[in-house]
Computed example of a mutant assay.
Amino acid sequence: MKAKGNREIRYSHRHTVRFSEAEEASLREQAASAGLTLSEYLRRRLFGGRPIVARTDDQTTRELRRIGGLLKHNFETVRTTGRREDLEEMNRTFRALRQAIEALIHPA
C-alpha cells in the first residue's frame, strides 16, 4: 500500500481472526462495495479514519443531488405558470429526493 508522498507502508505484524463462512462473505462483499481490499477495509473498520461509503452510494448521492439542482432551476419556471398541481408535484419530488439522499448518507 502506498501512503501519501509515494512512501510505501510496510505491515510487519499479522493477527489471525476467525470468521464464519457467512461473516467472511459479508466482509468481502462490504469491502468490494467500498472498493477496498479486505485488509484495508478491516483496518479502516478497526481504527476509524474516513467513513467507509460504498462507491455506488456515493455516486448515487451525487447524482440525486445533481437532479435536485436541475429541478430547482425548473422550479421558477413552474412557479410562474401558476399551476398549483405542478408546484405540489415538484415539492413531493424534492421531498422524495431529499429522503433518498438522507437514506444513503445515514443508513438505519
Rank of each mutant, 00 (worst) to 15 (best):
R79Q: 11
I52W: 02
H73M: 07
G35A: 07
K72T: 13
H15I: 15
R83S: 06
L70H: 04
K72D: 11
A32W: 03
D57L: 04
G82P: 05
A25T: 04
R44A: 04
R98A: 14
E8F: 07
F75L: 12
S26T: 05
R65T: 07
Q30C: 07
L36C: 01
L71W: 02
Y11E: 12
R66S: 09
R55L: 08
F94M: 02
D58G: 05
E40Q: 15
T77V: 10
N6Y: 02
H106Y: 10
R43I: 14
A32R: 13
A103Y: 03
I9N: 11
D86T: 00
G69W: 01
G69H: 03
A22F: 04
E40L: 13
I67V: 11
E24K: 10
R84S: 06
S33L: 09
L36F: 04
G5P: 00
R18A: 12
R44I: 03
E8K: 14
K72A: 15
T93C: 05
A25D: 02
N91H: 07
R28K: 14
A22C: 02
E29C: 04
A31I: 03
I105D: 15
R95Q: 08
T60E: 09
L87C: 03
V78Y: 03
E102N: 14
A108P: 15
T37F: 09
A103E: 11
T56C: 06
R84Q: 08
I105K: 14
P51W: 03
R45D: 00
Q99M: 11
V78A: 12
T60R: 11
I105G: 10
R45T: 03
R14Y: 05
T81C: 06
E63F: 12
K72Y: 03
L64C: 10
A96I: 08
E76L: 13
H13A: 09
G68D: 02
H15G: 01
L42I: 15
G35Q: 09
E21S: 12
E76I: 10
V78N: 00
D57G: 02
A100I: 04
P51K: 08
G5C: 07
E40V: 06
H13F: 12
N91G: 02
T56W: 07
I101Y: 10
A108I: 14
I105F: 05
Q59I: 09
R66M: 09
F19C: 15
R65A: 06
L97M: 03
S33N: 07
F47T: 13
T80F: 13
A108S: 08
G35T: 13
R65N: 14
R62I: 10
E29T: 07
E8Q: 14
H15M: 13
T93Q: 05
F47C: 10
A3P: 09
Q59G: 03
I105V: 15
S26Q: 03
S39I: 12
Y41I: 02
L104E: 05
D86V: 00
E63P: 00
A22P: 04
I9M: 14
E88V: 05
E85M: 01
L87W: 01
G69Q: 05
H73E: 09
T77I: 11
Y41G: 01
V17Q: 13
A31G: 04
R45H: 01
F19Q: 11
R50N: 08
L46K: 04
G68L: 06
